[in-house]
Design a protein around this nucleic acid. Structure first.
Lengths: 206, 206, 206, 206
DNA sequence: GATGAATGAGCTTTCATTCAT
DNA sequence: TATGAATGAAAGCTCATTCAT
C-alpha cells in the first residue's frame, strides 16, 4: 500500500487545471446554447461560445448526445437541489408543492432542451427523473399527510404535469410570458383535496 | 337519377385517378411518418412509404414545409370538424367541453408533428388555430352561460391547456398510455366553477 | 405497282394534321424560349408555351438536344435563306457583305441559344455551318473579285467573326443595345482592301 | 536583413499550413475545372480534383458562387497585373495595346468560365471589370496621344471587343487554335488611325 | 492536450426522360 | 395518339465526428 501510494503520487491533478476549466466552459456554454436553441443546434455554436476547439469539446464529450445528457443532467440536478431545499424550508406542505412547481416553471421551462427531453425520453436522464421523482414524492407525501392533496394523485401525475406545464411555458414565452401561471393555478386547484372524485385508473387505455 | 347521371358526366376528374391516388398516398404516408417521427424526418422516408418517387412527391408539394403544412392542416381540420360536430351534438355544455379535450388528446396528441407545431408556431397554421379558437370559444361560452366554468377562464387558457396536455400524451404514449386522462380530469376539475378564486392576471410576468 | 398503290392507300396523311400542327407549335415555342433563355431552360417551359404535353413533345423530339438542334437549325436556315436572298439582291459586293453581317447581328445575335451554340459546337449544326459557309463564301468571292476585300481573308475568318460579334450583341443587349454596330464597323474596316498587310498563318499556334 | 528576418517571425500563418495548402489546391482545381467546363460543373468534381472533401470545400467557400467569383477574380487579377506591367513596359503605345489583347486572348480566353462571365455579367466581377477598364483606358489614352488610334474609339469599345474575341478563341480552341490571331489583326487594323470615318453613335439602336 | 481543418454521408430540391391512362 | 404524372439520378449544401498539427 505504501508502494502503491508512491507509485501513484498525484495521478489526477496533473494539468487538470486547464482541462477542468475547459470542461466547465463547455458545460456552461452548452447549457446556454441548448437552453436557447434546443438540442438540434450545431455543435460548432457551442464550441464557439465556450471558446474551445471542436477537438477539445469532443475530448470531453465523445458524442453530442453525451454532452447534451451531461449538461441537462447537471442543470437539472443543480436546480433540483435548490428546489428541494426551498421546498423543505417551506413549512406549509401545499405551499411547498406550489412553490416547487412555480420554481420549476420559472427556471427550467424556459430551457428548450429540457422541455424537448420530456417528450423525447421522459426527462433529461433516468437518474434525473429518479431524483425528481423522489423530491416530488416527498412533497406529495407531506401534502397527503396534511390532507390537502386530492386522494389518488400519484407522483407520476405530478411529474407528468410538470412536463406538460413546461411545454406551456415555452409555447407562450414570447407571446404571453405570464400566462402559464393561470394554467398552474388551475392545475393546482384541480389537485387540491377539495376534489374528491376518483381519478381514472392509471392503465385505462381505451 | 339516370338523367342526372347523364347530365353530370364527371366535370373534371379526368385523367387524374392515379395522380389523386398518389397524392392521397403521399398525404397518408406523410401524415403517418410526420406523426411518428416529427417534422424532421427525411423526405425520402415519406416517398418510400407512399410508394412514389421523389419527383412525384415534389410535384404535389413543391417544398417539404408545404407538405408538412398541408398534412398537418388537413389532419387537424378533419379532426376539428368531427370534434366540433360531436361537441355540438352534446347537450350538456360541460360534457361537450370535456369530450372535446378527450377527443383532441385521443386523436391529435399522439401526433409528433402536431405537438411540435404547438411549441414552434402555436399550432399547425394560423387558420387552424383560428378555427380551433372559434370552436373552443363556442364551448367556453356555453359553459359560461350554464355557469359551470370557472370565472375568468379565457379561450387562450383552454387552447394553451390543450397544447400542454398534448405534450403529456406524447410523453407517456409508450410507457403509460392512459395516464393523461388523469391529468385531464385534474385540469377539468380546476376549470370547474367550483373554483372561484380569481386567476392571475394574464400579463403578470414577474 | 398498282397493287402497291392500293396496299398503301394513304399512309402519311392519316391524322397528320394535328401532329403537324403540334410539331409546328413545339418548334415555334421552343424557338422563342431557347432564344430568350438559352439551351438550359426547363423543357416544361417549352411544353407549357407550346400548349402540348411532355409526351407529345418527346414523341416529336426524343431528346432535348434533338429539339434544340432542330429548332436552331430551322431558325438558322430560315434566316440564312432570307439573308442570302437579300445579299444576292444587293449589287455592291461590299454592301452585300456588310448587310449580311448587319442582318445576322440584328436577327440572330439576340438568340441566346444560337450564340451559345457558336461557343459549344461552332454553330447550330454541321449542315447549318456548311450552308452559312457557302453563303459567306459567295459574298467573299464577290468582294475578292471586286477587289474590295483584304487579301487572305478566308471564309473561316468571316464566319468566326460573325460568332464573335454575336457574342458582343448579347453582352450589351441590355446595357447598350447599339454598341455592337461600332464593333462591326471597326471589323469591316479592318476587312477592307485598304489593309494590305498579310494576316497571320492559320495554324500559327505559338 | 538578418535582423529583419528575426524581427518578423511569421505573424499569423500559425497552424494554417495544411489549410492554406488545401485552399490553394481548391482554388487551383476549381480554376482548372471552371476553365475547362464552365461555371456549371458539379462541385463534387472540384472536390475530387483538389483531393479534399465537400466539407473542406464549403469551409473555404460557403457557396459555389463565392468559389467561382473568387477563382475568376483571382485568375483575372493575376493576369491583369501581369498584363498591365507588360503593357507599361512596352514603349510603343500601339504595341502595348496589341500586346495587351494578345496576352488577354492567349491567357484568359481559353477559360470557359471567364468567357461565360462576359456574357452573363459583363466580366468576372464589378471590380475586375473596373480594373480592366482602367488598364484599357490607360492604353487607349497613350494611343490617342500618339495619334495611332482611330478617333472616337472608346474604352467600352475595346472592352467589348476583348469579350467578343475571347469568344472566338473559345470557339476555335480545338479546331483551329491560332485562328483568332487573324481576327485580332483585322480588328486592330480597324482600330488604327488609318480609319478616319466616324463610328456609329453609341446609342443608335434601330 | 488543445486546436480547428477535414471528412463524407445525408438532406432538400431540380429536371431530362419515361410510361400509364 | 396526346397527356402530364412519375421517375430517380444528380446537384448544392450541412453538420456530427475524426485527425493532423
Amino acid at each position: 500500500m505504501t508502494l502503491a501510494d508512491h507509485a501513484v503520487p498525484a495521478p489526477r491533478p496533473v494539468r487538470r487545471a486547464d482541462a477542468e476549466r475547459n470542461r466547465a466552459a463547455i458545460i456552461k456554454a452548452a447549457g446556454e446554447v441548448f437552453a436557447e436553441c434546443g438540442g438540434g443546434v450545431d455543435v460548432r455554436e457551442i464550441a464557439r461560445r465556450s471558446g474551445v476547439g471542436m477537438g477539445t469539446l469532443y475530448r470531453h464529450f465523445p458524442a453530442k448526445d453525451e454532452l447534451l445528457a451531461t449538461v441537462l443532467g447537471q442543470q437539472f440536478d443543480a436546480w433540483l437541489t435548490d428546489a428541494h431545499q426551498r421546498a423543505m424550508a417551506t413549512e406549509d406542505p401545499w405551499q411547498a408543492l406550489a412553490g416547487f412547481f412555480e420554481q420549476l416553471l420559472t427556471t427550467q421551462a424556459g430551457n428548450r432542451a429540457v422541455v424537448e427531453s420530456y417528450a423525447a425520453t421522459g426527462g433529461p436522464s433516468e437518474s434525473c427523473v429518479q431524483r425528481c421523482y423522489s423530491c416530488i414524492d416527498e412533497l406529495r407525501t407531506r401534502c397527503v399527510d396534511a390532507g390537502v392533496l386530492r386522494p389518488g394523485v400519484t407522483t407520476d401525475d405530478l411529474f407528468l404535469l410538470s412536463g406538460a406545464l413546461s411545454q406551456a411555458v415555452l409555447t407562450t414565452a414570447e407571446s404571453n410570458p405570464g400566462q402559464w401561471r393561470r394554467l398552474l393555478r388551475i392545475s393546482l386547484d384541480g389537485l387540491s383535496s377539495r376534489n374528491t372524485e376518483p381519478l381514472p385508473e392509471r392503465d385505462a387505455d381505451a
